[in-house]
Amino acid sequence: MTGNPENNAGQRDPEMHELEAEFGSIMGLLRDGPHDVEPVEPSADLWSKIELDLTAGSQATSASEAPVAPAVTPADASATTEAAAESSNVVSLADARASRGKRAAIFTAVAAAVALVAVPVGLSLRSDSSNDILLAAGELDVLDNAASESAVVELYDTDGNLWLDLDTSRAAGDGEFLELWLIEADENGEVADLISLGQIDGSGAYDIPDDVDLDRFSVVDISVEPDDGNPEHSGDSIHRGIPTS
């Protein structure tokens, strides 16, 4: 299916025209249609040749006492995997927090009360951009014995804005809704403070206000709330957990 320049939507559509200045070259390539590169299975010995090249390269580098590049040999993969995990490009939550610490504010009861009626935002903001940096993630505990249900959260930084990507099959029943919270737990595990991120409608992306200190509000909580106009937490939590880096 190739774009037809004689009947081009870009020429008929003012919305497209607006994008031309910024994305013109990409739009032109897209209109050429999908690529026509046919995958070709590698020959049986291609991988061996690559291994050989890398081993030879490593030995040559070692001989010249330059920084050693690891050879591709049947090494202990688990050890390298651990090393990879330690030095991965996932930004540590501690680092991210440190950079945000200066603008973190003490969350007062008044501020929390305001946040309790906050509207959920950005339901379509799923992570598919290279600007999204994964800071932390985790699968939340199920608190209501619904063993077949799950909730996975990922904390992202997109150009300095933090947001949670929630993936859950949960849905609210009639006369109730689900609400997403961040909780500060004290040293005894008691709830010291909490912030509502708003009502949720299953999976989606939910912004975290700029002034929230995630060192304090580190627990993610999902509750079932009766549709009774009371903005306070019902106490009926169905998922809870701490995403980690």
């Binding site: 690891p70 993969a77 995997t81 990879a84 995990a85 985790g138 595990g189 957990g241």
Partner: peptide, 26 residues
């Protein structure tokens, strides 16, 4: 009450193929 074993239910995301590649995982 947040479970005392709160830390226990943390499930870190394993590094991606790309991250392991950059880190030198053969």
């Amino acid at each position: 009450r947040v479970p005392a074993a709160a830390i226990g239910y943390i499930r870190p995301v394993p590094p991606t193929l790309e991250e392991r590649f950059v880190a030198g995982d053969e």
